[in-house]
Every structure is written in structure tokens, then in C-alpha cells.
Simulated assay, not measured.
Amino acid sequence: MHTGLVHSLDLERDGKVLDYLSMPFSIDRSPYFQLKVPVCVIRNGTGPSVLLMAGNHGDEYEGELSLARLIRRLDPAQVRGRVTILPMANAPAVMAGKRCSPLDGGNLNRAFPGDPKGTPTSRLAHFLEKELFPRHDVVFDIHSGGTAMEHLPVALIERDDDADRHRHTIALMKALGMPHGFIADNGAAAPTSLGAARRAGVVGLSGEFGGGGTATVDSMAITARAIDNLLVALGVVQTPVLGGQAAAPEPMRLMSLTRHSQGIYASRRGWFEPAVRLGDKVTEGQIAGWYHDLERLEAEAEELRFAEAGIVISRRLHTMCEAGDCLVQAAELVGEA
């Protein structure tokens, strides 16, 4: 069946190949235009098969830069098995510096399982879930808070009904070397890459590695550490490639974010001033920040308070807000992984 996507990759051939996933999509300036998504396959004999992807959202740069570096550094002689790398999965969004694709408005991480006859984002999602994910043992999708948010570094997995696979997933999540972990319960029909990995019968890993539409020394270091630790833990490589391998400073702490009351959301246009930092422990009723109305200068700023205790896991970076914007979230600590 035509998948709406073409490529010439041979996933079983040894060596290193940098190629493209191509999707025909007519646009005003180019009626026979093809969207090109770069992909690199590095294979050396039999062994584990891992898919590393970033740029699911275009303005999340830690993974994009790290995987671009990995493509340049990783030699097939270092590899046992196969590493497939998608450094900018939603390529139009990456090039536009936006969360979603400017071609079709597509949010790739809400597009799975996709449609082979749909928009480019939908066709890519279909190809990933139906064709590419099932040919790997592990899928690692690297995220961050993007332009609008800063996010506490945290590993992320989906709860899996397959007990053996779930135990293996938790073990690999711990191996990433992140200070915090997060187990989501979005269900089997989740439209995310982790939902797609689960439906494909493979281990799905993800995480948030920074934010703000930038890359910092710290966010790049923890991203490199996670990639190196995963490849070493799987036995794909014997030594770190990006120079980031290190043990977590302490046992991974598991967090939960399942209730609307764990976040504070704007109900009208305003300007948010935070009173807390990422990683702060907060109590019920503690001030989270102030909401200013610069269109009514005589009005006092509204005090915003946490409805529940927890650890600040994310906050909005843009001071100006509209109704519906998430301003800050406090996750619940639920134990150690």
C-alpha cells in the first residue's frame, strides 16, 4: 500500500548512510515539492536496534543538536547492531523554529497513528508507527519545554500493560541518569510517540531536557549523558560517544502529574510574574506568582497559589499570557524508580 512517503533506506545494510524520508506535498511556489526529513542509519552486524529522534517539536533544540553531533561522531566500527537517527523529525517546524509544522499546522506528537493519505505530518506519523518503530527494539524521543516553557529535566515513559516490557522500560529509564522520572498513564490510544511505540510493541522512552527555545551548557550535558547512557546500557556501544556518560547523582525520583489541580492556568489576558523556580518544593496554598493586568493599572496584581503541594516541574517563560495558557505546574513525588 502507498504510504505517502518514499525512501531508499536499507536498514539491513552495514555501514553509515545519511538519506531522507520524502513526502510529496504541492505548495504555491513548487507544485512538485517534496518535504525532506533527514535520517541516518548506522549498522554493524547483529545486535540491539535503537531509534533516536528529536525535533518532534521544532523549537526543542537540545535533542536536535545532540543527535546532529552523534551523526558526525558515531562510526559503524563502534556499533553493535543498529542506530537509526532522526535529528529533526518534524523538519518544517525545526526550520521555522516553531512547535508545529508551518506546512499543515501539524503537531507530530499529537498525530499518531497518522494517515498514509493525510497531511505531511500525518503521513510521517503513520510511517513512523507502522513501518519504522516496529523495526527497532527501543525508541527514544527527546523533548524539552520549547520556546514557551522551561522544564525540569525529567525522563518519561508510558505505563505498559505488558509487565515484562514495562520492567525493561523502567530499567532503561533509570539508566538514562536523570534526576527525575515520570510514568504517564495516557492509555493505549495516546496520539504521542510513546503511544505509537507501545502500539508497535517496542520500548518507548522520552524526556524533557530543558526549554526556552535555546540550548545551555547544562541542558546539553544532561542530554548527552542520557544518549550515551542509553547506548551503553543497550550494548550498542561500549564507551560514550558524546562524552556525557555519568551516573545520576542520586536515585531517580518518580513524579506524577495527573490532576488539573496540579497546574495553574490563565483565565484571561494578563502578565505572569513567577514566585518560584524549577525544582522548588512547594506547599498547598503557597504563592506561585502574581498575575498583572497592564490594561488596568489601578488593579492590584492577583496572587496565584498552588492548590497542591509538589515540586515545580514547569513554568511558562513568556510573561504575556492569554486565557488557557499553563503558567506553572507542581508534580507530586511518588517514590523512587
Rank of each mutant, 00 (worst) to 15 (best):
Met53Gln: 13
Leu257Cys: 09
Ala68Val: 09
Met1Ala: 00
Cys100Met: 10
Met255Leu: 15
Ile227Tyr: 00
Arg159Val: 09
Ile42Thr: 04
Asp75Thr: 14
Ala307Phe: 07
Leu70Ala: 11
Thr319Cys: 12
Ala125Val: 10
Leu327Arg: 04
Thr258Val: 11
Met220Lys: 12
Leu234Met: 12
Arg315Pro: 01
Gly243Arg: 05
Ser26Ala: 15
Pro38Glu: 07
Ala248Tyr: 03
Val17Ser: 10
Leu86Met: 12
Phe127Leu: 15
Gly195Tyr: 02
Cys100Glu: 07
Ala89Asn: 00
Leu317Ile: 12
Ser22Lys: 13
Ser26Glu: 14
Leu327Ile: 09
Val6Ala: 00
Pro274Trp: 02
Tyr265Glu: 11
Asp218Phe: 05
Gln34Thr: 13
Met53His: 00
Lys174Ser: 15
Gly97Val: 00
Ala309Trp: 08
Ala184Cys: 10
Cys326Ala: 11
Asp141Val: 06
Ala215Ile: 15
Ser206Ile: 03
Met149His: 12
Leu103Gly: 02
Ser26Pro: 14
Glu150Thr: 08
Pro120Leu: 12
Pro113Met: 07
Phe209Val: 04
Gly97Trp: 00
Pro191Cys: 07
Leu294His: 12
Gly210Cys: 06
Glu303Arg: 15
Arg43Leu: 09
Ser193Met: 09
Ala226Asp: 08
Leu257Thr: 01
Asp160Ala: 06
Gly47Ala: 08
Phe209Gly: 01
Glu60Trp: 06
Tyr265Lys: 13
Ile311Ala: 02
Ala226His: 07
Leu327Trp: 01
Ser30Thr: 10
